[in-house]
C-alpha cells in the first residue's frame, strides 16, 4: 500500500463516523474469511490429532501424533507427493517452453495472431471437468482416437486403458493439464513480451543479431519477471491439483494417481478417516505456506539484485 496523503483537518470531527464506516465496509469480507478459511484451518489442526469417523455425536478420540505417523509411513503418501512433483516437473519442462513458444508466436509479426491467441486460450475457458471428460473419451480404449486409428488401419488389437497404468496415467493427466493451461500461461508470457520496447529488437536486428540471439540476449533477460510469476504459480500450484485428476482417474486405480489433496479427500470422504484426512490437510497447509514463502523469497531477492 502506498503512503497516504495527510487527512484534511475539516474531516477530523467526522473521524469517529468514518472509523465506524470503515469497519462496516471491511466487516463482510473479514467475516466470510474467518468463517470459511480461518476457523476451518484451526478446526483441521485440532481434528488432525484425533480419530473420528465423521458421524455426528461420535467421540473424537485424542490420538496425538498417530495420524501423522501413519501418513508418513504410508508409501501412498510418498507416491502422492511424487505425483505432485511430476506435476511441477511437467510445468517446467513441458508447459513453460510450450507457453513461452506460443507467446513468441502470438506476439510475432505473422498474420492472424489475434485469431491464434483467442484459439489457444479457449481450453481453459471450458472448465476442468469438461476438459477432463473430453480427453478421457479421446483416450478410451474402446472407442477413442487410438481405437479409431486402429480401425482405419485394419488392426484388431485390444488397447490398454492408459488411464489405469501406473505413472503413465499421471503423465497423461499432466499433458491434458498443460494442454488446458498452455493458452493461459501464454498470455502471462505475452504480457512480458509486449512490455519489451520494439526499438530494442529493431536495433539488434540492424546490428545483425539473428532471431535466436535476440531471444537469448534481449527477450529472456527482460522477461525475468514473467518467468518468476510462472514459477511461483507452478510450484505453489502443484500441491493443489485436484479437479483434473479426480475427473480423469478418481486418483486411482488404488490411489496410484493421487496427489496429497486427493488423498485428503479419499481418506475423509471415501474411507471415513476424518482425523487422518485432517492431518493431510495440515501437511498440505504447512507445505503450501512454506513453498509460497520460499519461492516468493527466492524470487523477490533476485528481483532486488536485478534492480
Amino acid at each position: 500500500m502506498s503512503k497516504k496523503s495527510t487527512v484534511p483537518k475539516v474531516k477530523q470531527k467526522l473521524d469517529k463516523k468514518d472509523l465506524t464506516i470503515s469497519i462496516l465496509f471491511l466487516l463482510p469480507a473479514i467475516l466470510i474469511c474467518v468463517v470459511f478459511i480461518i476457523y476451518p484451518v484451526f478446526d483441521t489442526f485440532s481434528l488432525s490429532f484425533r480419530k473420528w469417523n465423521g458421524m455426528f455425536g461420535a467421540v473424537k478420540e485424542w490420538v496425538g501424533m498417530e495420524n501423522y505417523y501413519k501418513i508418513v509411513t504410508d508409501k501412498m503418501f510418498w507416491n502422492a507427493m511424487l505425483n505432485s512433483f511430476y506435476f511441477m516437473i511437467g510445468g517446467f519442462v513441458i508447459l513453460m517452453p510450450l507457453a513461452f513458444g506460443l507467446a513468441l508466436l502470438v506476439t510475432s509479426k505473422i498474420k492472424g495472431t489475434s485469431f491464434f491467441r483467442t484459439c489457444y486460450f479457449l481450453p481453459c475457458m471450458l472448465g476442468t471437468t469438461a476438459v477432463a471428460l473430453m480427453w478421457t473419451f479421446m483416450l478410451n480404449p474402446n472407442f477413442g482416437v487410438f481405437h479409431a486409428i486402429e480401425n482405419l488401419l485394419g488392426i484388431d488389437m485390444p488397447l490398454p486403458d492408459v488411464l489405469t497404468v501406473k505413472t503413465l496415467n499421471v503423465w497423461i493427466v499432466i499433458l491434458v493439464n498443460e494442454w488446458m493451461y498452455a493458452g493461459y500461461n501464454m498470455l502471462i508470457f505475452a504480457a512480458g513480451l509486449v512490455a519489451i520496447p520494439e526499438d530494442l529488437n529493431e536495433a539488434a536486428a540492424l546490428d545483425g543479431a539473428t532471431g535466436w540471439q535476440r531471444i537469448r540476449y534481449i527477450t529472456l533477460p527482460l522477461m525475468k519477471n514473467s518467468f518468476k510469476v510462472f514459477s511461483i504459480l507452478c510450484i505453489t500450484g502443484c500441491l493443489k491439483v485436484f479437479d483434473i485428476i479426480w475427473a480423469m482417474t478418481r486418483g486411482g486405480p488404488n490411489d496410484i494417481s493421487s496427489t496429497p489433496s486427493i488423498m485428503l479427500y479419499s481418506q475423509g470422504f471415501s474411507y471415513k478417516l476424518f482425523g487422518r484426512s485432517s492431518a493431510y490437510g495440515v501437511i498440505l497447509l504447512v507445505l503450501g505456506v512454506v513453498l509460497s514463502i520460499v519461492t516468493n523469497r527466492i524470487f523477490r531477492e533476485d528481483k532486488d539484485l536485478a534492480m
Binding site: 500500500m1 497516504k4 487527512v7 468514518d18 472509523l19 470503515s22 471491511l26 469480507a29 473479514i30 474469511c33 470459511f36 478459511i37 476457523y39 476451518p40 484451518v41 478446526d43 483441521t44 481434528l47 500441491l239 493443489k240 485436484f242 489433496s261 485428503l264 479427500y265 475423509g268 470422504f269 476424518f274 484426512s277 485432517s278 493431510y280 490437510g281 495440515v282 498440505l284 497447509l285 503450501g288 505456506v289 509460497s292 514463502i293
Partner: peptide, 29 residues
C-alpha cells in the same frame, strides 16, 4: 483510501488467505 494503523494487519490477514490451500478446509466446512 483510509489511514488507520490497523489496516496493515487487515491487509496481512487477507494475504494469508491466499496461502491457505482450499482442500484443507474441506472437512471443517
Amino acid at each position: 483510501r483510509k489511514d488507520y494503523k490497523f489496516l496493515k494487519f487487515v491487509y496481512l490477514f487477507f494475504m494469508i488467505g491466499v496461502m491457505v490451500p482450499v482442500h484443507c478446509t474441506l472437512i471443517p466446512i
